[in-house]
Design a protein around this nucleic acid. Structure first.
Lengths: 339, 339
DNA sequence: AAAAAAACTGTAAACGTTTTTATTGCAATA
DNA sequence: TATTGCAATAAAAACGTTTACAGTTTTTTT
């Protein structure tokens, strides 16, 4: 037996009846349509207040297909990664300013989950979407872009389709980090990569290799470890690197979580940073200074990324035909004590 | 000028026309109503697949007021706090298993923002809500509970109303931490509180005071500092405590962010932990071991909190009249090296 | 073979809005 | 006074579903 739950279902009809006008008039009052006598307007407004009427957004959205749902979708690969949390904060601040709420979908790098969430988002008729697709050829997202839904990609682009995108200089950032390691005399610099199919992972690897070459260091494939961008993979791959017959003397970690994982392994082995092994992470955190030792890291302007992405998205919603832009933000090497 | 964006608007009508049946039949096929000939069913299914039809959830929800929107609202006070992120992960996993998507609202301890988001959530006709209200007397949330919307509170209860709630033993957790400090010989143990109106802050303070008394230590109001649960307040209040004529020799930090703030201050002053000053934080993080020094902390089972809350919520959605429960989870003192 | 029952399918109403179109009342004009 | 024009309001259609009810076909029963 379905239980009666008494969501207040005050609707236009009740308001209209009580105010002695038609629902059209009430609707006009609500939407500030000027064609209403001041006296009628106040009368209706009083009833609205008395009955605590608030419009049903579902009905509203059904009626005007192009009416704003004031809903933005956000498709995030990994909510555990502080980087994305920071991006989210940027998005959220801008969204709030513009009176949008966020439907946040965390797909944990799981393509099936991503698909489910995208389906939901689409049929919720969101106004726009900020996404970090699983990879450059993410058909589902590409299809959405083609369908005309306003979309901004962050962290990862989309190939073969015209879409706004906010990225950072991954290659330069990685180069700076590895170059710094090399200049400090480290010879066996390892790279622990995130998911290898991600453009960002690839670009960081490219920067890594370029820096090695610039410093006349050999590129040893043994020192490049491919993971899945998780904390656990950082732990494991760092162990592998330390177990090599000729172990790494420095680690360049592909992201936040990998860095923390690597640190965990190093601390468990009671190795000294940077004497025994140096560490530089991609992604800075506001508490990096409190790590042991204070971490040297490539700072991505995460909050800024989110903020820009949200701004671009709202721009596009308001002007669907403006040319697409790619926004490339700078990274910054924060030198502390881990190298 | 509104631009024509061609969201594929395949609807029941088109499918029906193409399949040569009525929209009622198509609807029945979609909803697995048994009263359809197998031959008709497959015919319709083919058309559905061919046209890539997917039902419009907005229309669906308008029609069946009590139909599931498959949307859960989450009202989070501070997305920057890793504790809530972990809670969110727990919620999300359960939600996904049960095919719910999340509307995530981060209100940053701002009551106005909270109200806006609640309005949106309500008129989105979500199926249920998980909330950490700003305080025990949060009228807005109380009103929602009374209206019959399924709600589960986390981290903070709600007074004077019957609602499911998932909490931790704040007082016991705090007691264990402060007792540990006292047993290690610290005499001037400070407490940096989060927002004082939060029940959790109050309970932790109670545990703190009880532990002092149990160890025959005086309660010095000077050593109790009230903040706003933020990183910044941790930085500032820790400075105040170190500036006292008779400074604190140990700090019990009221949450995650406060802990990180306090650490920042201590490191800036080049003080040694735990020799110069000991630190215990409320809230453990998986990277606490990588902090300098590895942090002793009261672990809240954050993921578990989220998971339980989501389970309770889904139970309530499916059975709105089951009696409410309060779930109190245990904390655990993770002893590492900061004391 | 006709009647009754069962199984299937179609029609139309309803959900709560917005908006187009129609109606009303009233002042200004001829 | 009869007509027009205008403003304010009302009526009705539409958005895409689900579902009660009616209608049709098929099957079973007599």
């Amino acid at each position: 037996m379905p239980v009666e739950n008494d969501y207040k279902t005050v609707n236009l009809n009740e308001v209209a009846k009580k105010a002695g006008v038609s629902i059209a008039t009430v609707s006009r009052v609500i939407n500030n349509n000027p064609n209403v006598t001041p006296v009628t307007r106040t009368k209706v407004q009083q009833v609205i207040r008395k009955l605590k009427y608030s419009p049903n957004r579902v009905a509203k959205r059904l009626r005007n297909r192009y009416a704003s749902s004031n809903l933005l979708g956000v498709l995030i690969p990994d909510i555990q990664n502080p980087f994305y949390v920071e991006v989210l904060r940027g998005i959220e601040d801008v969204a709030y300013e513009n009176k949008y709420a966020l439907i946040m979908c965390n797909f944990s790098q799981d393509e099936k989950k991503e698909k489910l969430y995208l389906d939901i988002l689409q049929s919720e008729s969101i106004d726009g979407l900020i996404a970090a697709p699983t990879h450059e050829h993410d058909q589902k997202v590409i299809h959405l872009v083609k369908s005309g839904l306003p979309i901004v990609c962050v962290d990862r682009g989309l190939s073969g389709v015209d879409v706004d995108v906010v990225l950072v200089e991954n290659k330069n950032g990685a180069f700076a980090a590895v170059d710094h390691l090399a200049k400090n005399g480290y010879k066996r610099i390892a790279y622990i990569s995130g998911l290898p199919q991600l453009p960002s992972s690839q670009q960081r690897e490219a920067g890594y290799i370029e820096a090695l070459m610039a410093n006349k260091l050999p590129v040893d494939r043994e020192l490049i470890r491919l993971g899945d961008s998780s904390h656990e993979s950082g732990v494991r791959l760092c162990e592998e690197l330390l177990n090599l017959s000729s172990p790494a003397d420095a680690v360049f970690a592909g992201n936040n979580l990998i860095t923390l994982g690597a640190l965990e392994t190093i601390h468990k082995r009671k190795l000294k940073i940077p004497q025994d092994i140096a560490v530089i992470g991609f992604d800075d955190m506001y508490w990096s200074i409190s790590l042991n030792p204070p971490l040297t890291a490539v700072r991505q302007p995460a909050y800024e990324i989110g903020k820009r992405a949200a701004e671009l998205l709202i721009q596009r919603i308001n002007d669907p035909v403006r040319p697409t832009v790619s926004m490339i933000l700078k990274t910054e090497l924060m030198i502390r004590n881990s190298c």
